[in-house]
Design a protein around this nucleic acid. Structure first.
Lengths: 164, 164
DNA sequence: AATATTATGTCAACTTATTTACATATTATT
DNA sequence: AATAATATGTAAATAAGTTGACATAATATT
């Protein structure tokens, strides 16, 4: 009996270990292949993620750096650099929030919109390759599982002090 | 009929988009929370992944940088820096391969083994939090799905020229 | 045997992530 | 109203990822 429990724990621990390692591998490959796939558009996967957030209906009026960082689950400080590079190329603009002079609202420029439109074909073909052999049903299941993991990580992050 | 197909495609594209974004979020949080969780052991999640590879029975005799890079799915060049930091602290050693003088075999030192042993308790508690609300059966399913994604990414990477 | 090609690891420059520190603006407290 | 506390964004230093270039060693070719 005791042995059964121990064996079960060891199995679970081994699975957790492998699962975390797979996540690490997949993330590395997502970045590597994504960067190269959109190379000719001069955009990285991180910039791609940012543009994808800015085109959402909800953020048409602009989004504060703090909120964008929370959405992408990166630090505010990290965004400063990426946003500066995007701004230097004229893809986004930083607008001072009328209601709070500390805050900068990040918005896509017409140039940014055009670039986003230009890369949609390649983004679609990338997803077609990356999600090969996965049915929509499979994708729904993965999404569900990743949501649980994301929530667990978010809870750990919060318990660790959040953005401090 | 045509419309059904279009709708189906749009749904699949939306799922792919959200799935990739979840992967990006989870990876960011895994690194952020993992780094902080093992802070007192002075080890990052990347170093943790490397140590975890080096303790495997198969690599007790040492592993070449090229093979380690393939396992972690990062570039050879990236490892140079991380390995130098680990070597400077005396956790690993680079041994010239007798059979091929170009190759360096990476091995854990006794100090490295001790440090690895010291952090096992915290690693276990991290996994307990990170994998909360997931049964072993769930973990097996996630592992299966991530394997498919990893293989898809690997295929894309290879088609893009691999390590060039 | 001499030479060309390939493989391995490292260095340098760049992007993206982190934390700490800080200037400035807003909000709360007294 | 004055002051303390909090919030926002940025700068700087460090770690981890990328690619391109290179020295050196092993292998293939002639």
């Amino acid at each position: 009996m005791k042995q059964d429990i121990d064996e079960s724990d060891a199995f679970g621990a081994s699975l957790s270990n492998r699962l975390a390692f797979r996540l690490y591998q997949c993330a590395n490959q997502l970045n590597k292949t994504g960067n190269k796939w959109l190379e000719r558009h001069e955009v990285t996967t991180q910039q791609w993620a940012i543009l994808g957030a800015l085109v959402r209906d909800r953020w048409q009026g602009g989004i504060a750096v703090r909120d964008l960082a929370a959405l992408l689950m990166v630090s505010r400080q990290n965004l400063t650099g990426v946003l500066s590079r995007l701004e230097a190329r004229g893809w986004i603009e930083r607008i001072i929030d009328e209601h709070d002079n500390r805050s900068r609202l990040i918005k896509l420029t017409p140039e940014g919109w055009q670039r986003w439109a230009d890369m949609q074909g390649d983004i679609a073909s990338f997803y077609a390759e990356a999600m090969k052999n996965l049915s929509n049903n499979d994708k729904v299941h993965i999404l569900h599982y990743l949501d649980i993991l994301r929530e667990n990580f978010r809870a750990i992050d919060e318990a660790q002090g959040g953005e401090d």
